[in-house]
């Protein structure tokens, strides 16, 4: 039951993110390159969430748990890497963009970069450890 509630909440969150994103795209008019790249990362994160949800549904249908001790450990490790990435991207993200593109990131975009970079690092490290079993 707990697994099923978790899956339903996950589907709800992913759907809410997609709806919000579609409203943003519809009302944004002409999108700039930085906005398009941020939307791309959001879509990658939603695809990652969908994959994880699909995998959990598959296991629950077979009568296996959605999450066990190995996946909990994977979650903790990936969360740690995501946290480190958040700190580094907050410090060096705006600096790197200013040096490389001569563009000063406004505050709301710095927040977006931090959230999306940490999310991306979480997703990639989670998938790596999930497939490799480390």
């Amino acid at each position: 039951m707990k697994d099923k509630i978790g899956i339903l909440i996950g589907i709800g969150i992913a759907a809410a993110v997609l709806v919000t994103l579609s409203f943003f795209v519809l009302n944004a008019g002409n999108l700039e390159l930085n906005e398009i790249s941020l939307i791309g990362i959001v879509l990658i994160l939603v695809a990652f969430a969908m994959y994880i949800l699909w995998d959990r549904i598959k296991n629950v249908k077979k009568g296996l748990p959605a999450q066990d001790e190995r996946l909990k450990l994977t979650n903790y490790k990936a969360g740690y890497y995501g946290f480190i990435a958040a700190i580094w991207s907050a410090v060096f993200g705006p600096l790197a963009i200013e040096i490389l593109f001569d563009y000063e990131l406004p505050g709301h975009l710095v927040t977006a970069v931090v959230v999306l970079v940490s999310g991306f690092v979480f997703a990639t490290s989670y998938l790596y450890m999930y497939w490799k079993g480390k």
Partner: peptide, 11 residues
Amino acid sequence: LAKKIGVRRET
């Protein structure tokens, strides 16, 4: 075996 002990097959 995974079902018996309540973990995922990959584990």
